[in-house]
Structure formats: C-alpha cells, structure tokens
Design a protein around this nucleic acid. Structure first.
Length: 253
DNA sequence: ATGGTGGCGCGGCCA
C-alpha cells in the first residue's frame, strides 16, 4: 500500500504540466492532494476515474482558493468532507477517509505568509487541530495524517534556519506546535527512513530557489505509533515538477 | 532586498 501526498498549487495547472501522466507511471494506491484551487465543476474527475481511481473532493467555498481531495484505487468505507471547524471547512482544508485498516486525514494547514491576520488564524487552527487529533486518535488508533503543514519542524528541515527564524512557517511557536503534535503519539514517516539534511518538499518560485535547492520541508505524512511497525518506506520525490511543492510518499505493510 | 514569482479570476488576493 503506497500513499502519496502532494500540494498541487492548482489542480488544473498541475494537469497542464503532466500530472495525470506522472500518476499513470507512479501508480500509488492513494493520492492526497492539497491546494486544488478549483471548484467541483472545474475538477476533471473523469480523467482520474478512467485510470482507476475513486475521487473525493472538498473544494473551498471561495473560488480558486485552497481545497483538498483524495483519489484512491481502493474504495473507502466512509468519507467525511471537513472537520467541523467553521472557517477551516469554508476554506476546504480537511478531508477524512475511513479505510479497512486505517483512518486517513488529509489536511491543508493555513499559511501565515500573507500577513498578521492569516498568521493569527494559522495559530488558532493549529490549536484546534491538536484537540481534533487527540479525539481522532481515540477513535482511530491507526491514523495517517497527510498534508501540507506549512511548518518546518527542525533546523534540518529548512535551507536557512538562521535567516528564517522570523519567517512564518519556521517561527518558534510553530515549531513548538510540531513538538506537541508528535508528542501526541504521531511519527514523521519520512524521518524514520531518512535523517539527511537538504531534503525539502517546497521551494519558493522566486530567485531560482528550486534549482538551488533552497527549500523547506513542510509536507508530511505522519502516522500514529500503532502504524509505525507497518512502515516499509518513505520518501520525497523532487523530480516531479507540477507545482511549487513536490510529492512525498510512504509505503505501508 | 518590505523585493522576488505563480495560480486564480479578472479585484488584486493569496501563497
């Protein structure tokens, strides 16, 4: 069972850059997408269905903004659109899928990069999300949380830790939140298999950041302790270029 | 570097 998480920065733009063809050769069982930036009518589900995937979308109410979705070769037992938080659901940030042997929650965490108001909302969302996580862990001990967290956890996860100590996404309070998150009993699947530096999942469009690998690792697939022994592999895939993010993946026994 | 670039929808906003 292979699961991929990918912030597409616009599903229509990513499709124009060859996303479908990439999926056809990558052939994962489940793809968790963030930042669809499209309404339901503008998402070409048939393209994914024709290559063997069930599609579940939760776009934002606001046109062309945010939105999450999951496509899967295996039909889930249940799909929940949203997480019950009013603003997060308005912004299409969380989709939950119940599978036979695990619960999958795919999240696009708010970015705080556009100003104080959005940073305040990000912190508010993070606070609520911890309560949500604890509740979900009680209900579903085997939990997988994929997503764009918009936070680098440690210095090793960012190309310039000193220069970004005041940047949204690497603030001390955000990194402390990630500590708390993992203390709830979650495991960063990628770091189980890779402790190297310079492993990133997002690069700014500006100043040739990607070509110079000046990136941030802000995308994660985190699993609950109960699933850790089933982890076979996890990786980052910087060669896939349909977005300012790249896909990340894990393989589960 | 208070800049830089890209997606979306058509206003500049958001990242």
């Amino acid at each position: 069972m292979r699961i991929v998480s990918y912030n597409l920065n616009g599903i229509r733009s990513a499709l124009n850059k060859g996303l479908l063809e990439w999926i056809q050769q990558d052939k994962a069982d489940i793809y968790c997408f963030q930042e669809l930036k499209a309404s339901l009518a503008d998402i070409p589900s048939a393209l994914f269905e024709e290559i063997g995937y069930y599609c579940y979308w939760f776009p934002a109410q606001k046109k062309g903004y945010s939105g999450v979705g999951v496509i899967s070769k295996i039909k889930p037992e249940e799909v929940i659109l949203g997480c019950g938080l009013e603003q997060a659901d308005y912004e299409g940030r969380v989709i939950q899928l119940k599978f036979d042997h695990f619960q999958l929650i795919n999240t696009y965490f708010p970015s705080g990069s556009s100003g104080e108001d959005r940073q305040a909302y990000k912190m508010e969302f993070l606070e609520s999300y911890l309560h949500f996580l604890k509740e979900q862990l009680k209900r579903h001990p085997k939990l997988i949380l994929s997503g764009d967290y918009n936070i680098c956890h440690r210095e090793i996860d960012i190309h310039d830790p000193k220069g970004n100590k005041n940047s949204s996404g690497f603030l001390p309070e955000e990194r402390a939140w990630m500590d708390q998150f993992f203390e709830c009993g979650m495991v960063d699947a990628f770091r189980v298999f890779n402790q190297e530096a310079h492993q990133y999942s997002w690069w700014s469009f500006r100043a040739n950041a990607r070509a110079n690998n000046k990136g941030w690792r802000i995308d994660y697939i985190n699993v609950s302790e109960a699933l850790k022994k089933q982890l076979q592999f996890a990786a980052i895939h910087p060669d896939a270029k349909h977005s300012d993010h790249c896909p990340i993946s894990l393989e589960l026994k």
